[in-house]
């Protein structure tokens, strides 16, 4: 196995960890929906302690129900944010905070959340998905990856979690440094998530590379030819 494949395997394990937590949440939500339980409390009970774990790199998580999942709502957010530092919307928080879209008036222009990539892709493909890296302006106003997975089949909604790119950067760089020469972790569209090259930074996309798919994800680990 080449070095590139080895690093891809290791990165795959990292993301598998996030996705397996997401799978647990999915199973809990599906069971709760089937029993007709109050879904908000169920989601909070699951994500609350995990978001408060000092070792976590997950900054937000929850369930987003599509049309029909909650009476009188076109979309239902049961989404919580972990403790935040100097958030432009919420300031500094020490507990979990529920996402309150009504308090984000600037986001009124978003007509349809079911069009958002983190919702529409898992809903239509029935498969888990990684959105980003992108700047999220609803929750943390930071650069992040959003992992989502469909709930029910056909999908009634999605469960998801948000990871700050800067928080996973040290771990990813550590793995990339075991490769000879500059390398990067890329999104499916080639956007840099982390790179060991000073020429490839925030927001840039890399087209010319020799890459290997990170197992279980749409991400690619690649060597960079400057």
């Amino acid at each position: 196995m080449s070095q590139l494949h080895e690093v891809a395997e290791q990165l795959g394990e990292v993301f598998e960890g996030y996705f397996s937590a997401l799978h647990e949440l999915r199973v809990a939500v599906e069971a709760g929906l089937a029993r007709g339980d109050g879904i908000d409390q169920l989601v909070l009970d699951f994500v609350g302690p995990r978001l408060m774990d000092p070792a976590t790199t997950v900054v937000g998580a929850g369930f987003i129900g599509g049309p029909g999942s909650a009476a009188g709502e076109s979309i239902h957010f049961a989404w919580w944010l972990g403790p935040l530092e100097d958030n432009p919307l919420l300031g500094t928080t020490t507990e979990v905070t529920r996402l309150d879209l009504a308090a984000r008036e600037y986001a009124d222009y978003l007509r349809d959340f079911t069009n958002m990539e983190w919702y529409s892709v898992p809903e239509s493909t029935g498969d888990r998905h990684i959105t980003g890296p992108y700047v999220d302006h609803l929750c943390t106003c930071d650069y992040m990856l959003t992992l989502t997975s469909p709930v029910g089949s056909p999908a009634l909604g999605v469960v998801g979690l948000d990871i700050l790119v800067r928080q996973i950067e040290p771990g990813v760089l550590h793995l990339l440094r075991s490769l000879q020469g500059p390398a990067a972790l890329l999104s499916s569209t080639g956007r840099i998530i982390a790179s060991t090259s000073e020429h490839w930074e925030l927001g840039a996309s890399l087209q010319d590379h020799e890459g290997v798919r990170v197992p279980g994800t749409s991400l690619v680990v690649a060597k960079i030819f400057n």
Partner: peptide, 26 residues
């Protein structure tokens, strides 16, 4: 007005910069 604000915010998002997005919202 709502969509003008929305468009300029979306452009900041497309610029991939958290600081520009925060400043636009503020």
């Amino acid at each position: 007005a709502r969509n003008q604000g929305g468009l300029l915010l979306e452009i900041s998002v497309a610029a991939q910069s958290p600081r520009l997005v925060r400043e636009q919202i503020r």
